[in-house]
Deep mutational scan, measured.
Amino acid sequence: YKIYPYDSLIVTNSISVKLPKDVDRTRLERHLSPEEFQEVFGMSIEEFDRLALWKRNDLKKKALLF
């Protein structure tokens, strides 16, 4: 996945969300650098992957990456 800054990946309720063209809309968190991922989620990507799907989705919603 290509890395993008968190600010360019957050999704708000506005209709005209302009995400970069090559971003996987269903896995926005994968486009964060490991350092920024840790900062946003408070855990590593590996720890995040071990969580239940509902928990990952809940965290993504709170981080505006859903």
Rank of each mutant, 00 (worst) to 15 (best):
L64D: 09
W54D: 12
R56N: 01
L51Q: 07
A52T: 13
L19H: 07
I10F: 04
P34W: 09
S16C: 15
G42V: 06
R50E: 13
I45Q: 07
I45R: 10
D49R: 05
D24V: 07
K62E: 09
L9F: 02
W54A: 11
V17S: 15
H31R: 02
V23N: 01
S44T: 14
F41Q: 00
Y4M: 04
L65M: 05
L51E: 05
L59I: 05
L53N: 08
I3A: 05
R30Q: 05
K2R: 08
S33L: 04
D22V: 04
P20K: 04
Y1L: 14
R30S: 03
L64Y: 11
R30N: 04
A63N: 07
A52H: 11
R27L: 08
D58C: 14
V11H: 08
D22Y: 05
I3F: 07
Q38P: 03
E46C: 10
F48D: 00
F37H: 03
K62D: 08
F48P: 00
S33N: 07
E29F: 01
E39R: 14
R50T: 13
K2G: 07
V40Q: 06
V40N: 06
M43D: 00
P34Q: 14
F48L: 03
T12P: 09
K55W: 08
I10V: 10
I3G: 03
D22T: 05
R56V: 04
E36A: 08
L64V: 04
S16Y: 10
I45S: 07
Y1P: 14
K21M: 13
P20I: 04
V23I: 09
Y4L: 05
T26A: 13
G42I: 05
S44Y: 08
G42Q: 13
P34G: 09
R27Q: 11
E36C: 06
L65W: 02
D58H: 12
K2Q: 12
F66Q: 07
E39K: 15
F37A: 02
F37Q: 02
S16M: 12
Y6D: 01
V17M: 08
P34T: 14
R50S: 12
S33W: 03
F37E: 00
K18R: 12
S14M: 12
E36Y: 02
D49N: 10
N57K: 08
E36P: 00
K60R: 07
M43Q: 05
D7P: 09
N13P: 11
F66G: 06
I45F: 10
E35A: 11
E36K: 05
Y6G: 01
V17N: 15
E46Q: 12
Y6W: 04
L19T: 07
L65D: 01
F48M: 02
S33D: 07
R27W: 03
L59P: 00
R56T: 03
P34S: 12
K61A: 08
L64E: 06
F48V: 00
L51R: 03
K55F: 09
D7W: 15
F66C: 11
L59D: 01
Y6L: 05
G42R: 13
V11I: 14
R27C: 08
E46I: 14
D24A: 04
A52I: 08
H31P: 01
L19P: 07
S16E: 13
S8F: 15
P20V: 04
I15K: 12
L32A: 00
K55M: 13
G42T: 08
K61E: 07
I10D: 02
K2I: 12
L51K: 05
S8N: 08
E39I: 15
S16Q: 12
F66V: 08
R56E: 01
L28V: 03
R25N: 07
G42L: 11
V11G: 08
R27D: 03
V40Y: 06
R56I: 05
K61D: 05
F66E: 06
K60Q: 02
S44L: 11
L59E: 03
R56Q: 13
R25I: 15
L28P: 02
I3Y: 09
K18I: 12
R50I: 11
K62W: 06
A63C: 05
R30H: 04
R25H: 11
L53T: 09
I10P: 00
V11S: 09
G42M: 11
E46A: 13
M43H: 03
I45P: 07
R27K: 12
M43T: 04
L9G: 00
L28Y: 02
L53V: 11
E46S: 12
L19E: 05
V23D: 01
L32W: 01
P5M: 04
F37G: 00
D58K: 12
V17F: 04
S8K: 13
V40R: 05
D49L: 07
S14P: 14
A52S: 14
Q38G: 12
F41S: 00
R25F: 08
I3V: 13
S33F: 03
R50P: 03
S16G: 13
R50G: 12
Y4H: 04
S33C: 07
H31Q: 01
N13W: 05
L9R: 00
N13S: 13
S16D: 15
F48K: 00
R50A: 13
E39F: 14
S33Y: 03
L59Q: 03
N13V: 08
I45C: 07
M43N: 01
S14G: 14
E39V: 14
Y6F: 03
T26L: 12
P34F: 11
Y1R: 10
L9P: 01
N57L: 12
I45Y: 07
L9H: 01
L19K: 04
L19N: 05
I15M: 15
S8W: 14
L53A: 10
L65T: 00
N13M: 08
R56S: 04
I3R: 05
K18Y: 07
V23R: 02
Y4C: 03
S14C: 15
T26I: 06
T12H: 13
I15R: 12
E36R: 03
E46L: 12
L28E: 01
D58E: 14
I45L: 13
L64Q: 12
L65Y: 02
R50L: 14
K62P: 02
L19R: 05
V40E: 02
Q38H: 14
V17H: 14
I45T: 07
E39C: 12
K61L: 08
S14Q: 13
H31W: 03
L32M: 04
E36M: 05
F37N: 00
V11D: 06
E47C: 09
E47V: 11
E36N: 06
E47S: 10
R25A: 13
D22Q: 05
E35V: 13
E46P: 08
S8Y: 14
R50F: 08
K21V: 13
K21Y: 12
D58Q: 13
D7R: 14
F41G: 00
L28H: 01
K61W: 07
D7L: 15
T12Q: 10
R25K: 11
L59H: 04
L59N: 02
S44P: 14
K61S: 07
A63S: 05
E35S: 10
L9T: 00
E46G: 12
S44R: 13
S33V: 04
I15N: 15
K62Q: 11
R25P: 15
D24Q: 05
L65C: 02
E29L: 02
K62L: 09
W54T: 11
K60N: 01
K60H: 01
R56W: 02
E47Q: 12
K18G: 15
L64W: 09
K60A: 02
H31D: 01
T26G: 11
E29D: 03
E46Y: 11
L51N: 04
S44E: 10
S8C: 13
F37W: 03
Q38V: 11
L53M: 12
D58M: 14
I15Y: 06
D24K: 05
R50Y: 08
S8H: 10
L51H: 06
F41L: 05
V40C: 06
V11A: 08
K61Y: 08
I15G: 15
I3K: 07
P5W: 03
L64T: 04
L32Y: 00
T12C: 12
D24M: 06
I3L: 06
F66A: 07
H31M: 02
F37T: 02
A63Y: 08
D24W: 05
R50K: 14
L19Y: 15
A52C: 12
V11N: 09
A63M: 07
P5Y: 03
D58S: 12
K2S: 11
V17R: 12
L28T: 03
F66T: 07
L32H: 00
H31Y: 09
S44Q: 11
R25S: 10
R30C: 06
T26M: 13
R30A: 06
Y4W: 06
S8M: 15
L65G: 01
Q38W: 14
E29V: 01
N13F: 05
Y1W: 09
R56F: 01
L19F: 11
N57R: 09
E39T: 14
Y4P: 02
F48N: 00
D7F: 14
L53S: 10
K21R: 11
E47F: 09
V40G: 01
S33H: 08
M43R: 05
F41Y: 01
W54E: 12
A63H: 09
L53K: 09
D58P: 02
D7H: 15
I15T: 15
K62G: 09
P20D: 06
A63E: 02
W54M: 08
Y6Q: 01
D22E: 08
Q38R: 13
E39A: 13
E47I: 10
Y1F: 12
T12R: 11
S14K: 10
F48C: 01
K18N: 15
N57I: 15
D7A: 15
D7N: 15
Y4D: 01
K55S: 08
I10L: 08
N13Y: 05
